[in-house]
Design a protein around this nucleic acid. Structure first.
Lengths: 151, 151
DNA sequence: CTTGACCTTCACATAAATGTGAGGGTTGAA
DNA sequence: TTCAACCCTCACATTTATGTGAAGGTCAAG
């Protein structure tokens, strides 16, 4: 597919697709006329890139971890210099930290949202609630799922 | 404590502490001489801010979710306008997305690191390995723990 | 053949987080 | 008293991921 289709299917501006290529995150064939030509796997790849970018990783780091995310699992073991490995382990640990931070914060938000919901359900209008949140034994699907950390 | 101590205890440049205050993420008393004075809870607060910033959240968003992370759980329900609630739920969902993306990537890195480790242990020097990674039944503590997502 | 919808490169602009440093006040210890 | 180590504000610089648009090539349909 050409850049326009990839852009549309990934919700990514063309500008950014060229930028990712420039940063070495994405590769493209070139048609005879010079147009970029992408294969089907690029869709997932771009989504990966966007997700990691949105999660705070700079392109420089994404470039290093992208080879780990390719499907044919153990074929890319070739380029395993000690420094590369060290970088990977360091970044893996940083990602674990981010995950923990996000988990804590997300769960706190869920609790908060739930508390407000319960509070409003019982008719309080903007008034503060002194009791603990443990009375939040409600059966609403969506919110309940969120609180318990669903996927 | 003054800004220097807070900076040191959180590993954050003074410049950034003032910046966070400017963005409304952090508050400080002022001593008679104009020096900023911070309470003990600021340490955790700054660490929270830094973690979220590093996880890709802009200060504008962090400012909105920080009230949810305060300890006295249900006291801050006061300022629950519908828009605030909508924002919180939207951001909670984005955080869930980030968590999933980071989890996938981190686990992939762990698998990769593990595969390389096993590969090197059996004496291959930079050569690629064709078999699946399922033979990675090793007992190394650190790596094994990382693969299974420890902590 | 022309028009419109693609594509190319190049370049300048912007927002956000951060670095750096100037110019100047406070304070405690030598 | 003077010096070092803090603190203040202000301002300009940098990096990264983006937005925007100019100037121009390609190509299919009218």
């Amino acid at each position: 597919m050409r850049i326009g289709e990839l852009a549309e299917r990934t919700g990514t501006p063309r500008r950014m697709l060229r930028y990712y290529e420039d940063q070495g995150l994405l590769v493209s064939d070139r048609a005879a006329n010079g147009y970029r030509e992408y294969g089907e796997p690029c869709v997932d790849r771009v989504l990966q890139i966007r997700g990691l970018l949105d999660s705070g990783l700079p392109t420089r780091v994404i470039k290093q971890i992208l080879p780990c995310l390719k499907e044919p699992r153990a074929i890319h073991v070739t380029d395993a210099t000690p420094e590369t490995m060290a970088t990977l382990e360091r970044e893996r640990d940083r990602m674990t930290q981010r995950i923990e931070c996000l988990l804590r914060s997300r769960d706190a938000i869920s609790d908060y949202v739930e508390a407000v919901r319960v509070n409003q359900a019982r008719g309080a209008s903007g008034v503060s609630c002194d009791g603990a949140v443990q009375d939040a034994a409600v059966q609403d699907d969506a919110v309940q799922g969120a609180v318990s950390g669903r996927r």
